[in-house]
Design a protein around this nucleic acid. Sequence first.
DNA 1: GATGCTTACGATACCCGTAAAGATA
DNA 2: TATCTTTACGGGTATCGTAAGCATC
Lengths: 305, 305
Amino acid sequence: MNFQQLRIIQETVRRNFNLTEVAAALFTSQSGVSKHVRDLEEELGVDLFIRKGKRFLGLTEPGKDVAMVVDRILLEVGNLKTVAAQFSDTDSGNLTVAATHTQARYALPPAVAEFKRQFPRVHLTLTQASPAEISTMLLEGAADIGVATESLADTDDLIAIPYYTWHHAVIVPQDHPLTAHDSLSLTELAQWPIITYHDGFTGRPRIDQAFAEANLSWDLVMAAMDADVIKTYVQLGLGIGIIASMAFDAQRDQGLVLLDSASLFPASTSYLAVRKGRLLRGYARSFLQSCVPSRKSLLERLGQG
Amino acid sequence: MNFQQLRIIQETVRRNFNLTEVAAALFTSQSGVSKHVRDLEEELGVDLFIRKGKRFLGLTEPGKDVAMVVDRILLEVGNLKTVAAQFSDTDSGNLTVAATHTQARYALPPAVAEFKRQFPRVHLTLTQASPAEISTMLLEGAADIGVATESLADTDDLIAIPYYTWHHAVIVPQDHPLTAHDSLSLTELAQWPIITYHDGFTGRPRIDQAFAEANLSWDLVMAAMDADVIKTYVQLGLGIGIIASMAFDAQRDQGLVLLDSASLFPASTSYLAVRKGRLLRGYARSFLQSCVPSRKSLLERLGQG
DNA sequence: GATGCTTACGATACCCGTAAAGATA
DNA sequence: TATCTTTACGGGTATCGTAAGCATC
């Protein structure tokens, strides 16, 4: 048994049992991959994969158990390297943060700036992705820290730390009739065409929930993944927008008006998340700390004294 | 990085940093061991061991962290093999139970008999050892299950399951003056020379505790590791014995009398223990189950569905 | 016929063990 | 001096990659 075999098992599961892809992903030959799989199966005395002729279709029952343990082993191997790197070169290395557009653009900039100041020798990669992709990246080790409003708190094997709480707000063009109102109601909103976030993005479930609970049908004319797109089309007069309030900047967004609507929609919480059991470099912990300065205990909850 | 290197790191710590011993334990050459250590240190970029000239003295700070992770990796590697073996050959294999004399002789026989009946193809090894040795064996993977009254419940990285509770009892020769008494007191006991268990064996702390709390000094004339030795010398008239009550058998131990003394000493609890994070074969779980039939939940606490 | 897995085979690199040298107690 | 680690070197083996063969879709 060797590490390459374990990596191949893991990658085979991730790549939908296509050994050719696995070989490409691990920068080696198909033939080698094939042999490694056979060798390991022989050594363990059980078939790990369901085969139909020469095709791989999935994991056998023992294969499922083995794959779980393999994941843990490779996770710990990563931790080994992390521990060593932590000592050999404390303040240099890589940090990959995967975040949604909303987070990357409106929440993270201060933390990122602070981080670059504090750790100039760390290469920081800020990857933009959907909440689901962020989950996957964290689980597969492709990212160290994830930031999103959706999906992170529900996933086992992730540790989610509440980051901040915010409300949705309505934006309309400067001359829009709604600007005349003193206070907004959902019923009024529902009478206009609405542009807001896609399913699974930036608190969208809370918008659906608010209208559903009020028993209102609403006219969603467009769904986007980020507030900038929404704002663009609101400005074009396609409809009124519902965005995260922190995405509005009176300075930059001239021609648009933000209408307070904190009371209309339930609050949303954005989360920072890391993979359970994955050791973080010191500077990664600092990054989290600078995002949520008060929560000393939460870092301890990561199991990383 | 490869598994052999990790095994060497682990074994180097266990063998007190003597590479020659490590090589012998792993059935390989010193030179290879030496090179592997250097190679891994080079790959990780940190020294793992404190050296004085060419001698190894201990672990560096990063070495300590690395050694912990290495232990976890190798533990999981063992689990990998266990998982596979579990499927490839369900009811054959090995089971090593490490137990003290008291447990092996007076508590375990029914469970062992039941086990042999149920799993005739499993090779069962019952190793007799001191509580401290049992701990070590469990931690190092040399035993699957440990049984003892002392030390198992206090050790982190072990999961201890209460097995049964018992009391100490006094044994005296048939014609001994104490047999005339209706009820025994500690004060009376303290007037006789006493033979009982060694420190760290079979509830000895509770005996010390009882006398200490009563402010009595007592005359320990002999300390043994098992009840059979104690009984022998009690029979010879060297003193009165304090043993675990289940170690007395009226049939076998003719010439001796058991005096009830449940009220004199605090109750003792014997434990079954397994290494935290170590996967058990199905038959090993059955063994535990047959020892504590009622505690379904405790087996779940082992993290082994 | 295109894609994907297996087998065969030759080159390479890695791992191991012997032996000698150097360091420590 | 005896014990222990390092270095040097040669032999063996496992791993890898190319290429051909064969099954699946």
